[in-house]
């Protein structure tokens, strides 16, 4: 494969822009969603993701997901080396269709939650979480 000067310039610009932006969704995030939904279309609404705007440390970021009537909620961190975070499957004795946990984020990025509802449809939501990089690595 050969690159023209213009290709190289465009790629260089792309790299600069990428370096300035938060970590964004990659193909593997799309793949993970497709694997969960079986390729079905994904709507919005009826799902809540609660997370801090800013996390003091990416090692332990508290999040909660809620989707009334969901049978399962998958959480993805689009900017992590591997976007999978976990999937909550709710059983017959679930008291609500919500759960909280603590997750690792490699940097500022979108966290995505996708719920499978009882009728087999899917909804999703996302939130950007800023991860601060401190001056005192200590």
């Amino acid at each position: 494969m050969t690159f023209t000067r213009r290709d190289t310039l465009v790629m260089g610009l792309g790299a600069t822009v990428a370096a300035m932006l938060p970590l964004r969704a990659t193909a593997s995030t799309e793949d993970a969603i497709a694997a969960f939904t079986g390729g079905a279309s994904v709507g919005t609404g009826g799902i809540t993701l609660t997370a801090p705007e800013i996390a003091e440390n990416g090692n332990t970021v508290p999040i909660s997901v809620s989707a009334p009537g969901a049978t399962a909620i998958m959480v993805l961190a689009a900017g992590n080396p591997n976007p999978d975070v976990g999937t909550f499957n709710f059983g017959p004795l679930a008291g609500s269709h919500e759960a909280s946990t603590r997750i690792r984020l490699a940097g500022t990025q979108d966290v995505i939650a996708v719920a499978k509802l009882a009728d087999g449809s899917f909804v999703q939501t996302s939130a950007e979480i800023k991860v601060t990089i401190g001056g005192c690595g200590g």
């Binding site: 970021v61 976990g86 909550f88 059983g91 690792r104």
Partner: peptide, 16 residues
């Protein structure tokens, strides 16, 4: 009877 069944990945924090 099941209440919750969680599939966990490495992005779940230390001391889950």
């Amino acid at each position: 009877e099941n209440v919750i069944d969680v599939k966990m990945e490495p992005a779940i924090s230390t001391n889950p």
